[in-house]
Design a protein around this nucleic acid. Sequence first.
DNA 1: CTTCCTGTGTTCGATATCGTACATACCACT
DNA 2: AGTGGTATGTACGATATCGAACACAGGAAG
Lengths: 250, 250
Amino acid sequence: MTMNHVPARAQRLPHENALLAALSSADCERLSHDLELVPLALGQVLYESGETMSHAYFPLDCVVSLLYVMKNGESAEIAVVGNEGVIGLALFMGGESTMSRAIVQNAGYAYRLKAQVLKDEFQAGGALARLLLMFASALITQMVQTAACNRHHSIDQQLCRWMLLSLDRLPSERINMTGQLVGNMLGLDLKEVSLATGVLEKAGLIHYDNGEITVLNRAAVEERSCECYGVVKKESDRLLPRAEPVHQAV
Amino acid sequence: MTMNHVPARAQRLPHENALLAALSSADCERLSHDLELVPLALGQVLYESGETMSHAYFPLDCVVSLLYVMKNGESAEIAVVGNEGVIGLALFMGGESTMSRAIVQNAGYAYRLKAQVLKDEFQAGGALARLLLMFASALITQMVQTAACNRHHSIDQQLCRWMLLSLDRLPSERINMTGQLVGNMLGLDLKEVSLATGVLEKAGLIHYDNGEITVLNRAAVEERSCECYGVVKKESDRLLPRAEPVHQAV
DNA sequence: CTTCCTGTGTTCGATATCGTACATACCACT
DNA sequence: AGTGGTATGTACGATATCGAACACAGGAAG
């Protein structure tokens, strides 16, 4: 908890988010009045399935999961979004809501825009509109891959894929999350998570202790993961602008 | 081979597709020069994963599946599109290609537009642009649901869901498809399809004979299906304009 | 220190799923 | 009729997955 004297707050800049960073300075200037910096806490729900969204969120250093939650409470992660993207596609796609819940998987900061501002900006059809559509493409790729992965790959493989997707959006090699939560993300029971992490730990790929997963050997995890991680990453790189390096401003 | 006694051909109208039907007569008029009627054969591949698309297709009476195909050949259906939608979202989303294969699940006719025409039309930002985005929303819902369904529901339930989605896009209660193909769609082995159809047949819900599935008791199939079918249908109804009734022109 | 409580991790047995192999029906063509 | 190819149905064993009950830690309150 070294976060107490968070000097970061004042220094957070919009261009820590890849989409905002890719805007021209004119576009950025215009939006800057509407961009509001907000801290997002672990577990915070940005919107609930079927709800109308009030804002779109552009993550800076946080990670947000899109979860589908069934009537009986079982859930499944559909996609992960970090500083390469935005939460709130449905706003400009015309549906106003989606069938998934957006929940903060890793605390941090995000900029947000009021729903109407984003809609207007999209309507105007400028650079942001193009970026949003590109990101939507990348997100669809991730959803498609998730669907196929859920059908065909083992829990171990899926866990590896998930850890890699998370790591790519985090500054360190540690994922701070309880087994319970990991289970929610992957639609698993706690014991299934335990089993899978146990196997990977015995193999020396990770260390798992009380709600903290440390990846010891990333290459081996990639090896063990299914092709899905690679496909999503490659397509994401193809479609999206590169994110600014995340860290320590001067 | 003359088409002389195929009266259907001449009578196929753009408004058999819900998206085209929802256009104003002005929009429709303008597009009509570019709309080309094409027959689609069972098993025809409209585009291959990763390929650049040359056209967007608006199905009239055919059904098209979006499949993801793994490196080892295993496949999984991501979504089904009939006359309520269009094939070729990636064209205007900016990606140019998607990671899925579009394959004709039920033969019939479609209108198609050259890629550039669709892109220009979308750029112009008129009614068609809004409809395309709405349809994209509905398709995303279907993909999300597929991902969750693959994670949590049994093969029986998934088969029921799949049959219902197909029936909604077909004029009769019969689905003409070999078990092999059904397997491809759902990412199953032939024997798993056999097993599942066997169970449903014993229960009197369907009759399955030599590549033809007849649904005998639709209500019971809905009962047995998971919640996924209902969610997709409801969301689809919410977002999309109603399709014209499919059949006999005057 | 004890008790409760919540979150966490483990064990065991039931069931679903999947790989392999083999048996059968139908159709088209020679 | 005979032959090959495609579609289908069945059986058995190996795993993976999942449900239910049990076991353990640590913090808060008494």
